[in-house]
């Protein structure tokens, strides 16, 4: 039997159905309204003067989650890098290269994407946007460049790439610890330079996230020579 044809298996199916039943029963037992923490969160956001309540939750109230989340992302990058087979994966050229159309298009698009990424970071504090969105656009630009045959620029040594990947997290930790000097707690930004600090962190995070996404792509892409081994 081909391994692509799948035969339904009864026991796992039963388990999944039972799970569905468990979830269903739990959900149907809920009252139709439930505020959770919505009310105090909104009040808190208003008090601290952040217009977007979700941003307030992400960056302020539960900023610790976000710090660890950045750690998760960098960890995943490190993990994938540790699993790469080609030590030079980060500096290689992707097989094939680009035709004239893709090449020209990429060259035209890349600066615009850079601009969009920057914009997303800037609006992040008040509307939808932020480091993840910006980083995603930045990463996409990078991957596009790689796909069209560009390699890592010559000036970027291995050490420099590592710095770019880590700088977001390092600066984030630094900024998180900074309030400790003035008697605050971790991540308790002083109100006077709160905005600047967040912007600094977001900007560098965007850079690191973008670099992470490109690294993830490069580390797992097949090498130029001879494709993947069997």
């Amino acid at each position: 039997m081909s391994e692509h044809r799948h035969r339904t298996r009864l026991l796992p199916l039963t388990a999944a159905m039972l799970m569905l039943g468990v979830i269903g029963r739990a959900i149907l037992a809920l009252p139709t309204t439930g505020d959770g923490l919505a009310v105090p969160m909104r009040a808190g956001a208003e008090a601290s003067g952040i217009p977007n309540v979700i941003t307030a939750v992400l960056l302020d109230f539960r900023g610790y989650d976000t710090l660890l989340e950045i750690a998760v992302l960098m960890l995943a990058t490190v993990a994938v890098l540790s699993l790469r087979e080609d030590p030079a994966a980060l500096s290689r050229r992707i097989a094939g290269g680009a035709g004239p159309v893709l090449g020209t298009l990429t060259r035209a698009l890349a600066p615009i994407m850079l601009l969009v990424a920057g914009h997303l970071v800037l609006v992040g504090s008040s509307g939808p946007g932020g480091a993840f969105q910006g980083g995603a656009v930045l990463g996409a630009a990078g991957i596009l460049l790689m796909l069209s045959g560009y390699a890592r620029p010559a000036w970027a040594s291995r050490r420099a790439v590592r710095w770019v990947l880590a700088v977001g997290l390092i600066v984030f930790i630094g900024v998180a610890l900074y309030p400790l000097l003035s008697g605050g707690t971790l991540l308790q930004y002083p109100p006077e330079n709160r905005k600047d600090l967040i912007l600094l962190v977001e900007a560098l995070l965007t850079l690191s996230i973008g670099a992470s996404l490109v690294s993830l792509f490069l580390a797992s892409a097949s090498s130029t020579e001879g494709g993947g081994r069997r």
């Binding site: 105090p40 109230f61 610790y64 707690t185």
Partner: peptide
């Protein structure tokens, strides 16, 4: 307890 970000639970962590 240590309130991260200066926000005590339930707002903060």
């Amino acid at each position: 307890r240590y309130a991260v970000g200066g926000w005590t639970a339930p707002l903060g962590i």
